[in-house]
Structures are given as structure tokens and as C-alpha cells.
Amino acid sequence: MSGTVSDKTYNILFLCTGNSARSVIAEALMNKEGRGRFKAYSAGSMPTGRVNPHALSITRALGFEDTAFRSKSWDEFAKPGAPPLDFIITVCDNAAGEVCPVWPGQPMTAHWGVPDPAAVQGSEAEIAAAFSETARMLGNRIRIFLSLPLASIDRMSLQTKLREIGQTVDEPQSAE
């Protein structure tokens, strides 16, 4: 089967405004769950310049070093020499409404908005729980995406499925 479309490694960019929490978590989850099929990146329209420590706790739990992640501008991915992108997913409502750079190659886009765990106030345990919930929601969407037959689905159907994933209703995990 060597040389078939399914052998392709897809590049996916997760966007958020600050590139400090949600997009970084999505990048880590996709690189772990989609290893070999996907290479994930993350960026922001107005990067904070630092990755949220709670997001780094999650990436560490997934087996990554802190140095694997940095808060960076989406402009890096619109420059010559940047990896060609197949998919761009916004994970925060602000980034979804912003005017994005022109991406070479016409990547497919979708919005998978999830609540901002960095906006949660409370105890360390409450904040950590918000980050865990965000990771769970993004992980669910990524697993649905990974189950799609990318090699055999037409572009229009794939675009529709990508957008439908963003509409997934994520029931909070019960505390049983």
C-alpha cells in the first residue's frame, strides 16, 4: 500500500488568540493521538509569549517536554518555508471571528470552540479541573476527526464533517 494517499502525513494548525492554552493542548493531543498521520502545530493572532503553566501540566502528562511548546504568532505559518497546512482549526471564539492571514495551499478550516480554561478563577484545583475538561473536550473532537476516512472522503464531505465536529455537544464529565 506504499504511496497511497493514506500514507500522507497531514499538517494541522490549531489557532487561538493567545496561543497559551487551548491551541497548545490541541497541538499536544493531536501529536500524541495522530502520531504518524498528523503533525500538529499551534499559533495565535496575538500570542501572549508564554504557555500557561496549567497547559504545560497537561502536555507533560501526555509525555512532552515543556520546550516542545511556545506561544507564537500565526504569521509564522503564512511565511515562505512554513510547513504546508492541510487543516486549520480555531479553538476559541475570538480567533474564529478574526481575519486570518492568507494560507498557501487552501487548507480546510473549521471552528471547534471550547471554553477558555485560562479565564477560570478559583482554587488551583478548580483551575486544573477546567484545563482537564478542555483537554477532554478537545481530545473527543480530535478522536472523532482521526476516525474519518481521510484517504477516501471527498473534500466537500470532509469540510462538512470538520465543521460538524465543532458542533459536537460536549457533556461535562460526571463526577461519579
Score class of each variant (00 low, 15 high):
19 N>L: 04
120 V>I: 14
37 R>A: 08
94 N>P: 02
61 A>L: 09
89 I>Y: 11
123 S>P: 10
26 A>K: 03
2 S>M: 01
66 D>I: 02
9 T>D: 00
164 E>V: 00
74 W>K: 08
6 S>T: 05
97 G>K: 12
141 R>M: 12
72 K>R: 15
71 S>M: 02
25 I>F: 08
12 I>K: 00
168 T>D: 03
108 M>F: 12
55 A>V: 01
52 N>W: 02
145 F>P: 00
53 P>E: 14
62 L>I: 07
96 A>M: 04
167 Q>T: 06
82 A>P: 10
20 S>W: 00
144 I>E: 08
67 T>D: 14
72 K>T: 10
30 M>R: 06
15 L>D: 05
157 S>K: 11
53 P>A: 08
30 M>Y: 11
120 V>E: 08
84 P>N: 09
78 A>W: 04
110 A>F: 04
160 T>L: 11
35 R>N: 10
16 C>Q: 02
152 S>G: 07
9 T>S: 02
2 S>D: 04
31 N>M: 10
30 M>P: 06
107 P>A: 05
87 F>A: 00
36 G>P: 07
41 Y>N: 06
120 V>H: 00
7 D>T: 14
45 S>N: 11
44 G>M: 03
115 P>H: 07
10 Y>P: 04
176 E>N: 14
48 T>D: 13
9 T>E: 13
61 A>G: 13
16 C>S: 15
64 F>V: 06
155 R>D: 10
155 R>C: 03
79 K>H: 11
116 D>V: 08
60 R>C: 05
137 M>I: 15
126 E>A: 15
126 E>P: 04
110 A>R: 06
126 E>T: 11
168 T>W: 03
100 C>G: 13
22 R>K: 10
135 A>H: 04
98 E>T: 11
171 E>Q: 12
23 S>I: 08
31 N>Y: 09
172 P>I: 02
173 Q>K: 11
160 T>N: 13
128 A>L: 09
98 E>W: 05
151 A>Y: 05
146 L>D: 03
139 G>A: 01
19 N>M: 05
121 Q>D: 10
119 A>R: 13
24 V>A: 03
57 S>Y: 03
62 L>W: 07
72 K>E: 12
83 P>F: 04
70 R>A: 15
33 E>L: 15
78 A>V: 03
84 P>H: 09
164 E>N: 04
52 N>L: 02
136 R>S: 12
28 A>Y: 13
52 N>R: 03
63 G>L: 09
90 T>R: 01
2 S>W: 01
28 A>Q: 08
31 N>F: 09
32 K>W: 11
54 H>N: 15
130 A>V: 11
102 V>I: 14
